[in-house]
């Protein structure tokens, strides 16, 4: 088992990055970003078999696609702290002439990003295509993707979910961030989706649940289980129960911080709850 304290320290630092990035430009999406910090840190540090050097085709390594592109702050922080570009560049988030656009893009050539996302519901199709390219290339590495739960309201997902099982895309692990919230409120209030697990299973997927989606040990165990299920003729989904705004007490248990940045005073409180570990950018 890897050193979870190191992963925890990195997660705390990522949290600080997220908060400082959105605060500086008074825009961006801290809630979902904070909720997925443990997951993305663990994915990039421990789960994925990655090469140090970025190239678009990514042959001979695991690839990750972020479908819910609005959680770009956590994505950028994890990419930078995984060595894809300098952490100093986090300072340019959402600024003019930056590679760190509001939503991720390949357009500015930011290493680590392989597809633009932000307009929701498109990432699973892209991940499936990349997974099928891996099969054609005889590349046994895996494709990982992340999607919001509210995002599943987009119909294209269900086209993709139906296709992936029909075509036995079994080198794909798609994670759904089940935080139960979207921009207008609780998913159950906006558009109740019933059992997402049953829906995936009905569509022929293997569904793995991670009840403690903000617990690094639980993520490690759950993702190891997910990985063990690949290669069996079925796509795998991970239902990751997270807390939006995790790690900042006043941002948790509400959808209010989905797309709102903290003011100076709120930032100070939030940072005090997440003391510097690896050094701020």
């Amino acid at each position: 088992m890897p050193n979870t304290q190191e992963l925890q320290d990195l997660t705390t630092q990522v949290r600080r990055d997220i908060l400082r990035m959105v605060h500086k430009v008074n825009s961006g999406h801290p809630g979902g970003s904070l909720g997925c910090a443990e997951f993305l840190v663990t994915l990039y540090q421990e789960i994925m078999d990655r090469k140090d050097h970025f190239d678009m085709d990514g042959i001979g390594e695991d690839l990750f696609f972020l479908s819910n592109g609005h959680i770009s702050p956590v994505y950028y922080s994890v990419l930078a702290r995984s060595g894809y570009f300098s952490v100093d560049e986090l300072n340019t988030f959402r600024l003019i002439n930056s590679r760190l656009q509001g939503h991720p893009t390949t357009h500015e050539g930011l290493p680590g990003v392989r597809i633009a996302s932000g307009s929701l519901g498109q990432g699973m199709s892209v991940a499936i295509g990349a997974a099928q390219a891996k099969k054609l290339n005889g590349d046994s590495h895996l494709i990982y993707s992340l999607h919001g739960d509210g995002e599943l309201q987009e119909g294209q997902n269900w086209e993709a979910i139906m296709y992936a099982s029909a075509k036995k895309v079994d080198n794909l692990i798609s994670t759904i961030d089940l935080n139960g919230k979207q921009i207008d409120g609780a998913t159950d209030d906006v558009l109740p989706m019933g059992s997402i697990k049953q829906k995936f299973e009905a569509f022929g997927w293997i569904a793995i649940e991670i009840e403690k989606g903000n617990d690094i040990k639980a993520i490690l165990e759950g993702m190891a289980e997910a990985k063990s299920k690949t290669g069996n003729g079925k796509p795998v989904c991970v239902l990751l129960k997270t807390e939006m705004g995790n790690g900042v007490d006043f941002m948790m248990h509400t959808h209010a911080w989905h797309g709102k940045a903290p003011n100076d005073e709120q930032l100070e409180i939030a940072l005090s709850q997440n003391p510097e570990t690896l050094g701020d950018y």
């Binding site: 678009m56 990514g58 392989r114 199709s125 295509g129 390219a133 891996k134 290339n137 993709a160 296709y163």
Partner: peptide
């Protein structure tokens, strides 16, 4: 979307 993904891998 699948077509876009297939380009990744050449």
């Amino acid at each position: 979307g699948i077509a876009a993904g297939l380009t990744i891998g050449g």
